[in-house]
Amino acid sequence: AGDQFLIDIGLHLKKAQEEHEGIAGYMGDDDFCIILPNDQAVISSLQQKIMGYIRHYQGNVGFLPAFGLYMIEDCGVPIQT
């Protein structure tokens, strides 16, 4: 069930990637990354969708996402940095 949960989170990110011309990926364990245009409405919508999905499980997944935002100003910096 835990693996399916992570797969479903990945599907949310993939959909956001396609809708907003971003780049999404799985980084291992329970870590994901998505690069999107700097649009607060897009970011808030994605956070709300993921949190709604988690609430659907009523806290039984033992998982609470941590969202971190970083604005890329130098496109020469590697993504993993």
Rank of each mutant, 00 (worst) to 15 (best):
G10L: 03
A16M: 09
D8Q: 13
V77H: 08
S45P: 00
K15N: 11
I34P: 01
Y26P: 02
L46V: 00
S45E: 03
D3Q: 11
N60G: 14
M71Q: 15
G25Q: 05
L46W: 00
F32P: 00
I35H: 00
I54Y: 03
D29M: 07
L11Q: 15
I50F: 01
L13W: 00
Q80D: 14
N60L: 07
H56S: 08
Y70C: 15
F5M: 08
L36E: 05
G68C: 14
L6S: 02
F5C: 01
Y26S: 06
G2L: 07
D39H: 10
H20D: 02
T81W: 12
F67E: 11
G52N: 08
Q17A: 10
E21C: 12
F67V: 09
A41D: 10
G25I: 04
G76D: 15
G68E: 09
E19R: 13
G59E: 03
K15P: 02
G2E: 10
G76L: 12
E19Q: 14
V61Y: 07
I23Q: 09
K15V: 08
H20V: 01
R55W: 05
I50M: 05
A1W: 12
A41R: 11
G52V: 03
V77L: 15
Q40P: 02
L64S: 13
C75D: 13
L64E: 12
H20A: 10
G28A: 08
Q4S: 08
I9Q: 05
S44W: 00
K15R: 15
M51D: 09
G52R: 02
G76Y: 07
V42E: 02
G52T: 05
S45T: 11
I34H: 05
F67C: 04
E19F: 01
F67N: 07
P78N: 07
F63E: 04
G25S: 09
Q17R: 11
E18I: 09
G76I: 05
Q17L: 09
Y70V: 15
G52K: 04
D31Y: 07
F63Q: 04
G22E: 08
M27F: 06
I72P: 06
I34C: 00
L46R: 05
L36I: 02
E18A: 13
G59A: 04
I23T: 12
Q47I: 09
G25A: 10
F5Q: 06
Q58A: 11
M71A: 12
E73G: 10
T81Q: 15
L11F: 11
F32S: 00
H12F: 15
E73P: 08
Y53A: 02
G22V: 06
R55D: 09
Q40K: 11
